[in-house]
Design a binder for these strands. Structure first.
Lengths: 145, 145
DNA sequence: CCGTATCCAGAGGGATACTG
DNA sequence: CAGTATCCCTCTGGATACGG
């Protein structure tokens, strides 16, 4: 019951390079592997988990406590996906009570920089966005008059 | 029927700065505005739309054609959200047949850099991720023996 | 051409209870 | 503590048809 990628191998690189020097060929087909990965990385909870694991080792419960609103189920699912993608390392210490620790892999570490910049951008521009929304909503209401 | 943010004003900055110099306070509460915006920006279709509008003006149909798999409805919804957030400008030319053009606002342009880096990362590491998945699945199957 | 409106299936995701 | 399993419901999002 695997949701394996149907596309043969890749969909980046040059296809149709004789006609279109478009640097954004990647988004063309939805069975594109890049699209699959983007969906995974741009996930609501994945984003938060990766950001939190910046050079820190965290236990399951610690992660759950830090990420407000995540259910046990979704945290588990998210961590499994990230582990499968090789972004997070899961270590089980065979003691009682069980102790499971999560940390970023080197690969996951490289993603962190990008995600960090996304978060920073959001923090810096949240006021502009809030203003834009208010203006839009106001104009919306005016139109309905 | 607005899904307006319930939190008072903000949730970045220092709260509890006496105890924890954690640079990631932002993710704490789920009604946090930063979280709301992250969800919007990290959206499946938003990502693709913003990337495609890099210094180009595109019509509705052109966007739909370029983004394989998007339905008319979801493209409309996505564009409205982006417009409301002040990231995309929508221009209606009053001609027949109607001509509607979309472009990034200056604010949207600043986001583009970040998204671009996310896409680049994905392209560069897709092979590593694919390998990690295979290894994980193989180990998975071995465990079930 | 560029939408909006309506309907509806299905995945996402929460709550709860149970195991090692 | 760290999950797995189950139920169930909401909300996403696709298909279709219609309006400006």
């Amino acid at each position: 019951m695997e949701a394996t990628v149907k596309s043969p191998s890749h969909c980046t690189g040059t296809y149709g390079d004789d006609g279109d020097p478009d640097p954004f060929q990647w988004d063309a087909r939805e069975d594109c592997e890049v699209r699959q990965i983007l969906d995974r990385v741009a996930d609501k909870w994945s984003l938060l988990v990766i950001a939190l694991l910046d050079r820190r080792v965290l236990r399951f419960t610690e992660l759950k406590r830090e990420i407000d609103g995540v259910s046990q189920r979704m945290l588990t699912v998210t961590l499994r996906q990230l582990e499968r993608d090789g972004l997070v390392k899961r270590t089980v210490h065979p003691v009682v009570p069980p102790r499971v620790e999560y940390e970023l892999t080197p690969l996951g570490g490289t993603l962190h920089t990008t995600i960090r910049s996304l978060v920073t951008w959001t923090e810096q521009h949240q006021n502009e966005i809030a203003a834009a929304r208010e203006e839009y909503d106001a104009r919306e209401k005016a139109t309905l008059s």
